[in-house]
Structures are given as structure tokens and as C-alpha cells.
Design a binder for these strands. Sequence first.
DNA 1: GTTTACCCTATAGTTTTAGTAGATTTATCT
DNA 2: AGATAAATCTACTAAAACTATAGGGTAAAC
Lengths: 137, 137
Amino acid sequence: MLSKKTKYGLKALTYLASQTKREPVQISEIAEHENISQKFLESILLTLRNTGFLGSKKGKGGGYYLLKDPSEIPMTTVIRVLEGPIAMVPCVSLNFYEKCDDCPDENKCSVHKLMLQVRDSVLEVYRKNTLADLIAG
Amino acid sequence: MLSKKTKYGLKALTYLASQTKREPVQISEIAEHENISQKFLESILLTLRNTGFLGSKKGKGGGYYLLKDPSEIPMTTVIRVLEGPIAMVPCVSLNFYEKCDDCPDENKCSVHKLMLQVRDSVLEVYRKNTLADLIAG
DNA sequence: GTTTACCCTATAGTTTTAGTAGATTTATCT
DNA sequence: AGATAAATCTACTAAAACTATAGGGTAAAC
């Protein structure tokens, strides 16, 4: 299951990307428009800012804004920041690899074999979708 | 992340499928061979039995055994029983559909659009992989 | 009567999803 | 310049849900 954090984060990014003007948008506006708890969204936007996706401005007229063009934000990067590893088991993760402690030999592991395929196919979807693709249509 | 329940369940099924003789295998044997907590595995095998994948026999010489040929057990069915919905959000789930309460229009939802693609691509992997495919090689 | 699956309960631990309280920065108004 | 309001930022807390187990007893088969 996708966490609400990721879901809300994606919606917020989409909302920011669909703005005609690239001016700061307040948390409250995003929260209201996307039906998200404002305080929860606050922490999500903060991590998106700390990871280089968003810029922010304090005080009156402040808010959050995209730092890059939506077409240059692939879903792989967003998902990894919000949801964590794309792989369903650490032993097939590209960026978060970890050996299973119960598994003596990965190459003979059925779960490993299956989840490699799942990872590859999901990765392909995330790679070919940028933020721009999500707002199109 | 894949739950350990699913991981262990898959490993247990694989172990049963790789048996040369189709005779009951004890929980303890599976648990030991696959490095799984026996008590935990017990409950997993029980759900696999209650959902029609395994048969069981009590008493001496008892244990669990596959009810079908491994080539007739697609991963879609196994994953749905052990892990739950394959879709990452209920609003794109085929078997566990639920409307998002925060989303006024699914067709305009960026998360929906993205997760539809993810679902389709994962589904394809699970559909083409049967238990027999996992033990081959 | 021994061996095995079956069933029920509890529980520690972690993760998720927030809520609360206040501090800090910026813009604007007087 | 100073006050005020508007916004982000930071930290702490907490309820709820889920995960992964353990324990103990029951029932069936041999």
C-alpha cells in the first residue's frame, strides 16, 4: 500500500506543477484544495524541500514552489524520497540494498527471483513518468 | 515492502513445490529449512490451507502438501491471499476497489493515473509467473 | 499415547498519521 | 522604526494500526 504521505506528497507536487504562475503557494491552499490535513502536509512539504524538490519562502506572500521543471522530475526520485525503496524486498533494491538474513543464497531464492521482475517492471513505469506526465490530460 | 508473512508463505510454497514426492511435509521441517519462526509459519500455512492452496494431515506422518500442480498456481492468487491487494491504492484495485474519500474525481487524479500503470505492470508479472516458474532453474 | 496440525489469545515493537505548542522569518501597515 | 500579521519551521507527543512473534491448550490421526 502507498502511504498517505506519498499520496499527499504527489498530489501537492501535482498541484504546484499545475500552477500557471510559478509563485509561492501557501500550505493552507494546497491542503484545502487536495483535502489534506494541513499539519501533515506541512511535514511532507518540508521533506520535499529538504530533498531539493521544492523551494520555500517565509512570511506574507510566502509558500512553496517547484525548483525544477515538472518534466525533469521523474517519479523514481519522488517515490524514493516519499515512500522509500521501490523494491519490495531489500535484497533486490538498487538504492537500498540489504542482504536477507534468512536467505543463504539469493540466486536460489524464489522470492528474490519474483521480486526482481516486479522491481524492474515498476521501475520502468516510474522512470517514464515525470511530474509533467501526471498533469497532462 | 513485502511483509514477512508473504515472503515466508512464498518460500514455504516453493519448498513444498520442490518436493519430489507429494507427501505431507511437517511445519517444523519447512520452518527449519527456510529459517522461519515455526509459530509464525504455522499461521501462514493455515491461511494457505483455508484458501485452498494446501491440504493438511494430522498426526504422525502428517503435514502440509500442495493441492494443485505448481504450474496452475499463478502468483496473482498467492499474493492476493497473503499480501492483500496488488494495487498500491484501493481506487485502482480490481479485487478490492474502494473510492478515495479525499478525491472528488478519480479520472483527474494524478496518483490514480500513475498507480493504474503500476498496477498493470505488476499484475502482468504476477500473471505470467506460476509457482512452477519460481522453482525452475 | 504420541505426534502432529489446529485454534485462541496476548504482546512487544514498529510505522503511520496525525495533533499541539511555540519559534522564526518576512511583508506590510501605522 | 516599530508593531502586527502572515507564513514557514521545529520539536515533541500521541493515538491508532499493523507486524511479527510467543504461549498454551485442543483435536485428530496413527
